[in-house]
Amino acid sequence: MNNKRVKNIIEALGKHKDEESIEVLNELGTNCPIDEIREMTSKALIRKNTHRALELMIVNKGKGINDLSARVAMCAINELLALKDKQEAIKILDDTINMHSEKEVQDTARSVKALMSFSS
């Protein structure tokens, strides 16, 4: 696998100003069966630190912090903890804890929020 090319494209999409790049990453990156690529996508989306990108990583089941692969989920959580401005992330986490239909997702969001409050 030519990891370097994929990594660079995902990184470029992560830094791209066009909002459409989030949809591309969501569509192609987060649905990829390869853990490594999902991991890279999660990082790129969280680094964007926009409402849409963070929502995808926090709220969706099987993506970002709720990924079935522990490695991908941990990577996403680490990236959230590394954010300088955590305001938007905490807001989305609060909404998820209060309003999400799935208990599992709520629990994950609660744990991540606790970690974030400890780290900040």
């Binding site: 030519n2 090319r5 994929v6 494209i9 995902i10 999409l13 791209h16 192609l28 990156g29 690529i37």
Partner: peptide, 19 residues
């Protein structure tokens, strides 16, 4: 980064297909 998203989408999908 300076390329349009559509082009990046094509490139990424091609690469992922190969992978």
């Amino acid at each position: 980064q300076n390329k349009p998203v559509s082009e990046l989408r094509t490139m990424l999908s091609n690469e992922l297909q190969g992978v």
